[in-house]
Lab assay of single mutants.
Amino acid sequence: FEIPDDVPLPAGWEMAKTSSGQRYFLNHIDQTTTWQDPRKAMLSQM
């Protein structure tokens, strides 16, 4: 499912887009990137 862009990312995360428009996520805390939206895990725990 798609999460609306107005749902905030967890602390330390940033959303970016590739030149082709694909979204990816940067974790500044552990210096990693992922295609997986970290908000999905956050919302599934609620």
Results as ranks from 00 to 15, higher is better:
3 I>N: 07
46 M>R: 12
4 P>N: 15
28 H>T: 10
32 T>M: 14
44 S>N: 08
2 E>L: 10
26 L>D: 01
29 I>Y: 11
3 I>A: 06
20 S>I: 10
32 T>I: 15
6 D>S: 14
17 K>Y: 14
9 L>W: 06
30 D>R: 09
34 T>L: 00
44 S>I: 03
11 A>S: 12
36 Q>M: 13
2 E>W: 08
42 M>P: 14
45 Q>R: 10
39 R>W: 01
8 P>F: 00
37 D>W: 00
15 M>L: 12
4 P>Y: 07
37 D>P: 05
17 K>P: 04
14 E>F: 04
9 L>K: 06
36 Q>I: 14
5 D>Q: 13
12 G>N: 09
42 M>F: 14
20 S>L: 09
22 Q>D: 12
39 R>K: 03
2 E>I: 10
34 T>A: 04
13 W>F: 05
46 M>Q: 15
7 V>Q: 10
30 D>S: 11
11 A>Q: 14
41 A>K: 14
36 Q>F: 07
13 W>P: 03
8 P>G: 09
14 E>Q: 09
39 R>M: 00
16 A>P: 00
14 E>C: 06
42 M>S: 13
45 Q>N: 13
18 T>F: 04
10 P>Y: 00
1 F>C: 15
44 S>E: 14
6 D>I: 11
14 E>P: 00
14 E>H: 04
2 E>A: 05
23 R>P: 12
35 W>H: 09
42 M>H: 14
26 L>A: 05
37 D>M: 01
43 L>H: 15
30 D>F: 15
22 Q>G: 10
19 S>G: 12
27 N>I: 00
3 I>P: 06
33 T>Q: 03
41 A>W: 09
41 A>F: 14
23 R>V: 14
28 H>S: 06
1 F>D: 15
44 S>K: 14
35 W>K: 05
33 T>G: 03
3 I>S: 07
27 N>R: 03
31 Q>P: 00
46 M>V: 11
8 P>Y: 02
10 P>R: 02
15 M>W: 06
44 S>W: 08
10 P>T: 00
31 Q>Y: 09
4 P>D: 15
43 L>N: 04
3 I>K: 03
12 G>C: 04
36 Q>V: 10
32 T>G: 04
27 N>W: 00
4 P>E: 15
46 M>P: 04
20 S>A: 12
30 D>A: 10
18 T>R: 02
10 P>G: 04
9 L>R: 02
2 E>N: 15
45 Q>T: 07
34 T>W: 02
9 L>Q: 05
3 I>M: 05
4 P>M: 14
39 R>P: 04
30 D>M: 10
28 H>I: 03
30 D>N: 15
42 M>W: 11
15 M>K: 09
43 L>G: 14
17 K>N: 12
5 D>C: 10
28 H>F: 04
15 M>I: 10
27 N>S: 06
40 K>Y: 07
18 T>G: 04
1 F>W: 00
18 T>W: 03
11 A>L: 11
24 Y>C: 05
21 G>A: 06
46 M>W: 10
45 Q>Y: 05
31 Q>A: 09
10 P>F: 13
30 D>L: 15
21 G>N: 12
30 D>T: 13
21 G>C: 04
